[in-house]
Amino acid sequence: MDPYSAEGELINIHNHFHQGQYQEVVDFDVSSLSAENALPARVLQLRARLALGQAEDVLADVQGETESKPELAAVGALAQLALGNADAAVEAVEALAAGDAADNVTVQVLGGTVLQAAGKAEEALALLGRHQGSLDAVALIVQIHLQQNRNDLAVKEVAAARRWAQDSLLVNLAESWVGLRLGGEKYQQAFYVFEELAQAPATSSVRTLVSQAVAELHLGRTEEAQAALDQALKKEPGYAEAIANLLVLSVITGKSAEELTSSLQKADAEHPLLVDLAEKSDLFDKAATKYKAKVAA
């Protein structure tokens, strides 16, 4: 039986993870789980700890077990990535992918994450493509397609997954991600999914709140978006995504964004928004030099 299915033992911890409730994952009582599910649960907990920024601890945790368990090796690679050792992480993943471990779903998902994060989208997709009905992999594939701007492929992937995993959380999430890309009526549908998650106390997390805010932002409901983001920041003041989207929101509403820019700088100096902005700033300066007045003033 699929341990992640509605009756499975891992459904709750798995959902917590994907709803962004990482602390709940870490605190999850795994002692009662059957032996075969112990490892996947442990991996989830390790991943949650990684998401909570405890990369070094995680690395230490898996130390020594990576040889025997490819899952833990993959977790190790992910931890390396989180610590900024992208090269080492990729190397580890590539080693895993080349061997038999490539058929291990955890290796696929974590390896795909590492590869995609390192900008090796093709390799990531190749590895993920070997999955055998893993929704984690599907969601990751969808995200990679979206990052590649292949909305068409993402749509297809979701539609295919929809067929065999009706109302699974991950499919809903992935579909909402795609929906936010496609726009139109899909904005509203995506909003419903995020709102449901964000507003129920059992499932609410900063991530879902930010997601809800983003959907509202796209729908042009700036006030509601503001409220959701404020709520998220109250929960976790240093959450970079919340700050970034709040920054965007202030720009849209014509407010000054300077303060937020600096707080984002503090929260995550490498945030794509900042990186992108710096890049565009350079681009602007470069492009602007092409033009000059005939007569200097």
């Binding site: 974590l110 979206l146 991600w177 997601s211 796209h218 989207n245 965007v248 720009v251």
Partner: peptide, 26 residues
């Protein structure tokens, strides 16, 4: 320029461990 550029992109947190998904505000 930067203001207009910034205003049109949101950052959707998606899979753990990956950068957020960029979406485009219309």
């Amino acid at each position: 320029f930067l203001e207009v550029y910034q205003a049109s992109k949101t950052y959707l947190p998606a899979s753990a461990g990956l950068p957020p998904l960029v979406n485009y505000v219309r």
